[in-house]
Amino acid sequence: KEFRPGDKVVLPPYGVGVVAGIAQRSVSGVSRAYYQVDFPGSRSKAYVPVEAPHSVGLRKAL
């Protein structure tokens, strides 16, 4: 896996977040693995496909 729990990442347009782990989510009846990204200071979460994280701009924070 490219990202691990605890990694600081950037996800446009949300900003800097932390990978909380990998979650299985069902979309249109198909279960897939997603990185769960939490954003400190907020209750917001984002789910990014493990198979294509760069397709939505997910990258490691510098």
Rank of each mutant, 00 (worst) to 15 (best):
K1T: 15
K1L: 15
E2L: 13
E2R: 11
E2K: 10
R4Q: 11
R4W: 08
R4A: 09
R4N: 08
P5D: 04
P5H: 05
P5G: 03
P5T: 11
G6N: 02
G6A: 05
G6V: 01
G6D: 01
D7E: 08
D7Q: 05
D7T: 08
D7V: 04
K8C: 14
K8D: 03
K8Q: 10
K8I: 15
K8V: 14
V9D: 00
V9R: 00
V9T: 04
V9L: 03
V9G: 02
V9N: 03
V10M: 08
V10C: 12
V10T: 06
V10F: 14
V10G: 01
L11M: 07
L11G: 01
P12T: 04
P12R: 06
P12I: 06
P13W: 09
P13S: 06
Y14A: 01
Y14D: 01
Y14R: 03
Y14E: 00
G15I: 02
G15W: 05
V16P: 07
V16C: 15
G17L: 02
G17K: 01
G17Y: 02
V18D: 01
V19F: 04
V19S: 03
V19L: 08
V19K: 00
A20R: 12
A20E: 07
A20W: 08
A20Y: 09
A20M: 13
G21A: 11
G21Y: 04
G21F: 06
G21L: 08
I22G: 00
I22D: 01
I22S: 10
I22A: 01
A23S: 12
A23P: 02
A23T: 14
Q24S: 08
Q24M: 14
Q24C: 14
Q24R: 11
Q24D: 07
R25D: 04
R25A: 06
R25W: 13
R25L: 14
S26T: 15
S26E: 13
S26V: 14
S26R: 14
S26K: 13
V27R: 05
V27P: 04
V27E: 09
S28T: 05
S28L: 13
S28K: 13
S28F: 10
G29I: 02
V30Y: 08
V30P: 15
V30H: 13
V30K: 09
S31I: 14
S31F: 13
S31T: 13
S31P: 08
R32T: 07
R32A: 15
R32V: 10
R32Q: 11
R32L: 07
R32Y: 07
A33N: 10
A33L: 14
Y34I: 01
Y34D: 02
Q36D: 03
Q36M: 12
V37H: 00
V37F: 02
V37M: 01
V37I: 15
D38H: 11
D38V: 15
D38M: 12
F39R: 00
F39V: 02
F39Q: 01
P40K: 08
P40W: 09
G41C: 14
G41V: 07
S42H: 09
R43G: 13
R43T: 13
R43M: 14
R43K: 13
S44G: 13
S44P: 09
K45N: 06
A46H: 10
Y47N: 02
Y47Q: 02
V48M: 03
V48C: 07
V48D: 02
V48I: 09
P49G: 03
V50S: 01
V50P: 00
V50Y: 06
E51Y: 06
E51M: 07
A52T: 07
P53E: 05
P53Y: 08
P53V: 13
H54K: 06
S55C: 14
S55A: 09
S55F: 08
S55Y: 08
S55I: 11
S55H: 08
V56N: 10
V56Y: 14
V56F: 12
V56H: 14
V56M: 11
V56W: 10
G57E: 04
G57I: 05
G57A: 05
G57H: 05
L58I: 10
L58C: 05
L58A: 04
L58Y: 02
R59H: 13
R59N: 05
R59F: 06
R59S: 06
K60W: 08
K60T: 08
K60R: 09
K60D: 08
K60P: 14
K60H: 15
K60I: 09
K60C: 12
A61R: 05
A61G: 04
A61L: 15
L62T: 13
L62A: 11
L62Y: 13
L62K: 10
